[in-house]
């Protein structure tokens, strides 16, 4: 486990009396693709949002290269810059065009020069196939296009880990494919990714490891074959059964 870049230790999150995360512990290795699946309300998204501290955990530790980032005095903004996030609703900056969306974080947070930021942004927009749209504003793009720009925005920051929070859930079915294709391409570059998704088929094809989270704990984890083809936990079995029934 020496090449783990991130480790969650007994992570907990409560909203008042309601405990969403009871005890979540897992590590993320360099270059690994981890997929989190599970029933709605089980804590998948909350886990992901705790990783980049959009939600403040109420217990446990988050270690980055062995250092606890929840300790007082840790530079959280520098940490967040290293952990990219792609949102369900894309959340592109509506007052910026496509190119500016991909440049602003580099300029403000990484202090890159305008020229350098533009070069990197252009390169990544090209990778996701959105280079021709650099002058468009988010409102002028389709959902799939917006999500591809959001991915380019995130990877322009050269993150160590990229988190995906149900990146295709808000898309029309015909746009899901283009986003998944971009994610697959990214995975092949060796980027470390943590993906929360309902696309079981996609999870199977891309993941090194799948976590099944339900009721605030990791109910089961293993390779795609172990989890999807031979689930041991009763909840996993029920979830996959329901999923297959509803899929067709």
């Amino acid at each position: 486990m020496t090449d783990e870049i991130l480790r969650l230790q007994h992570l907990q999150k409560s909203y008042g009396d309601h405990q969403v995360l009871r005890d979540i512990s897992f590590g993320i290795k360099q270059g690994e693709i981890t997929t989190i699946i599970g029933p709605s309300g089980g804590g998948k998204s909350t886990t992901l949002r705790c990783i980049n501290l959009l939600e403040q955990p109420t217990g446990g530790e988050i270690e980055v290269h062995g250092e606890n980032i929840l300790a007082a005095g840790y530079n959280l903004n520098a940490y967040r810059a290293k952990v990219g996030m792609v949102f369900q609703q894309f959340d592109l900056f509506e007052n910026k065009n496509v190119l500016q969306n991909c440049m602003i974080g580099q300029e403000l947070v990484l202090k890159r020069s305008k020229a350098e930021a533009k070069q990197i942004a252009m390169h990544n927009l090209e990778e996701v196939g959105m280079a021709p749209f650099i002058n468009a504003t988010p409102q002028q793009l389709s959902g799939g296009q917006q999500q591809r720009v959001a991915i380019a925005r995130a990877i322009s920051m050269n993150p160590e880990v990229l988190l995906f929070d149900e990146p295709t859930s808000a898309l029309d079915p015909e746009m899901v494919g283009e986003v998944l294709a971009v994610m697959k391409k990214l995975a092949e570059t060796g980027l470390t990714m943590v993906i929360v998704t309902h696309e079981i088929g996609f999870a199977k094809s891309i993941s090194d490891r799948i976590l099944f989270i339900a009721d605030g704990v990791i109910a089961e984890q293993g390779t795609p074959a172990e989890i999807l083809d031979h689930p041991q936990n009763e909840k996993t079995q029920k979830f996959l059964h329901n999923f297959r029934q509803n899929a067709f």
Partner: peptide, 11 residues
């Protein structure tokens, strides 16, 4: 989402 996306970039 606008706040969150900006936070996530480390702003």
């Amino acid at each position: 989402g606008q706040f969150e996306a900006a936070s996530a970039l480390g702003m």
